[in-house]
Every structure is written in structure tokens, then in C-alpha cells.
């Protein structure tokens, strides 16, 4: 078999790929390199250093790594990802998909419609709706609970943004798991049921092993998205007193509000590294599984 399936030849094939490569270079590689460079300077938004940035070596990095504000922010981000992406979107999305799995008709369409709506609305609109819901005076939630004057966004900022992001992003996980559950043969579940397996046992023994790859892919995507999500800023702006200052908000506050572009770039690069590590860890998990399957399939045929 030839690898030149389109029959273009090397030169013409390169000519076709070149524009795409150029775009990737301009919009992805160059900014990344620029970020690394900025992270090594004392570049500022205004003032003397804005005109004449000086190279300061790894000062920005050591500074960030030593900063307790960075540590807090990292911890809050881990909470945010764990709470809203993994425990929230993935678990809730799977639960809804599992419950709706064998339902047809209006109930299913209604739930899917509501969940999808929260996914397709623009962030600014959604943020406004949530502010209206959680507002201290005249907020819908306080009216519903009969707790007038309760400041949800001030007293429970992390909980608020976790619930917000769970609500916002569950649709993706739900749809992914719905599609994946279609691939679980009913006879496998029924065999487990006939053996007397409870629902948790059916999930453990039949569903999760079959959906392992879907679950890992879903967790990778939503973890990365949530890790880099800036929308909570629209609700709490990182406050009060930095109690909901997740990393993307922290970068914004340092670089644009505080004006230290150099330090902001350094933190951005650290975030990039953390993302990379997460992605590699997930890919390793995925690949490890595939390899063991291949090893199993490669044995002597019957």
C-alpha cells in the first residue's frame, strides 16, 4: 500500500498543508513563544517598564511559586475542577444519561432541552441570569427559600461558582454518555440483572468497563475546559478577598488589573504546563488500556 493516497506528490501536498501550518504558527505557536518570552521580563501595562521591559530571568516564576496567593488560587482551581467538572458535570451528566437511557417521549425531550439550553446560551447572558438568581436583595433563590438578604455570592463564592459551572456544562457530559450508553448491549445488562446484580454492581461490572474510554476522554476534556474557564469572573470577579480566585481569574487580576504583564505571562505558562501534565496523564491512562487490550487480542487464536 502506498502512503500517498491522494496521489499529489510531496511538493503539492506540502503546498496544501502550508496555509494551515502558517495559521497554526501565527495563532498558536507564536503566542505561546511570546508568552514564554514575556514571562522572563518585567513587562508592565503602564509606566517605565511598559516602554522598556527588562529581562529578569526566572524571577517571575520563582515569585509566583513562592506566592501564597498562587497556592491558594491553585487549590481553589483544583476544588473548582473537582467539584464542578468531575463531581458535578461528569457525575450528574452520567446520572441523567443513565436515567434517561430507556425513556422516550416528552420527559426525555424536556430534560434534554433544558440541559442543552444552559449549554448554548452565551456566557454573559448566563452570568446575568445567575446574578439575578443569587442576588442578595430581590434574588430569585432568596425568594424561593424565604431567606431575604442572604448573600450567596459573598458567603459561599466557591459553592456558587461550582454549582453555576455544573449547571452550565452538564449538557456535554450528558450527551456524550447518552451516546456511549447506546453502545452497551442490553443483553449484557440483562445477564447481570438475571445474576442478581444491583444497579451499582451493573455499573461496576458491565457499564464502566465498556465506557472506560468515553469516561476518560470526557474527564480530560471537561477538566481542561474547567481549569481554563474564566466565566466565574462574571459572577464573583474572584472575590470576596480572593476566595473564588481561580487561576484564570488570578492571571487576569495580576496581569490586567495589577498591570504586571510579565508576572501574568509567567503564571499563564505555569497553567499551560499544568494542563499539559493533566493531558499527558489522561493519555497515558487511555493508552495503557489500549495496550493491554492489544496484548490480550494478540494471543494465539483459538
Amino acid at each position: 500500500m502506498t502512503t500517498d493516497a491522494a496521489g499529489l506528490g510531496k511538493a503539492r501536498a506540502s503546498a496544501f498543508v502550508l496555509p494551515a501550518l502558517a495559521l497554526i504558527a501565527v495563532f498558536l505557536i507564536f503566542p505561546a513563544l511570546w508568552t514564554i518570552y514575556l514571562g522572563l521580563t518585567d513587562y508592565r501595562l503602564t509606566g517605565l517598564a511598559a516602554a522598556q521591559p527588562r529581562l529578569v530571568g526566572v524571577d517571575n516564576y520563582t515569585g509566583a511559586l513562592a506566592d501564597t496567593r498562587f497556592h491558594t488560587s491553585l487549590w481553589l482551581t483544583v476544588l473548582f475542577v473537582g467539584g464542578s467538572a468531575i463531581a458535578g458535570q461528569a457525575v450528574l451528566g452520567f446520572t441523567i444519561a443513565w436515567i434517561l437511557r430507556s425513556r422516550r417521549g416528552p420527559v426525555r425531550r424536556l430534560v434534554e432541552g433544558v440541559v442543552l439550553l444552559s449549554w448554548i446560551l452565551p456566557s454573559s447572558v448566563v452570568a446575568f441570569l445567575w446574578i439575578a438568581l443569587l442576588d442578595r436583595s430581590g434574588g430569585t433563590l432568596n425568594a424561593l427559600l424565604g431567606t431575604p438578604g442572604f448573600a450567596w455570592l459573598l458567603d459561599y463564592p466557591m459553592l456558587s461558582i461550582i454549582v453555576f459551572n455544573t449547571w452550565r456544562g452538564t449538557a456535554f457530559s450528558m450527551m456524550l454518555y447518552s451516546a456511549a450508553l447506546e453502545n452497551v448491549p442490553p443483553s449484557h445488562l440483562e445477564t447481570a440483572r438475571l445474576a442478581g446484580a444491583s444497579v451499582p454492581q451493573q455499573l461496576r461490572d458491565v457499564v464502566f468497563p465498556l465506557l472506560r474510554r468515553h469516561i476518560l476522554t470526557n474527564l480530560l476534556l471537561i477538566s481542561l475546559w474547567t481549569f481554563n474557564d474564566f466565566t466565574p469572573f462574571l459572577l464573583t470577579a474572584g472575590g470576596p478577598e480572593g476566595r473564588s480566585e481561580i487561576l484564570p481569574v488570578y492571571v487576569y487580576n495580576v496581569a490586567l488589573r495589577g498591570g504586571s504583564l510579565g508576572a501574568g505571562a509567567a503564571i499563564s505558562f505555569l497553567i499551560l504546563l499544568i494542563n499539559l501534565i493533566m493531558a499527558l496523564a489522561y493519555l497515558r491512562l487511555l493508552r495503557g488500556r489500549r495496550r493491554s487490550q492489544e496484548a490480550a487480542a494478540g494471543g494465539p487464536p483459538a
Binding site: S187, E190, A195
Partner: peptide, 15 residues
């Protein structure tokens, strides 16, 4: 429930 009937089933696709 199926699990309480003490029957075993073999499906067409073997499951």
C-alpha cells in the same frame, strides 16, 4: 425481580 427468580438465560449474542 429477574435476579430473584433463580433462572439463567443465554442470549442470542451470548452477552
Amino acid at each position: 425481580q429477574p435476579g430473584e427468580r433463580d433462572v439463567a438465560m443465554v442470549f442470542q449474542d451470548y452477552a
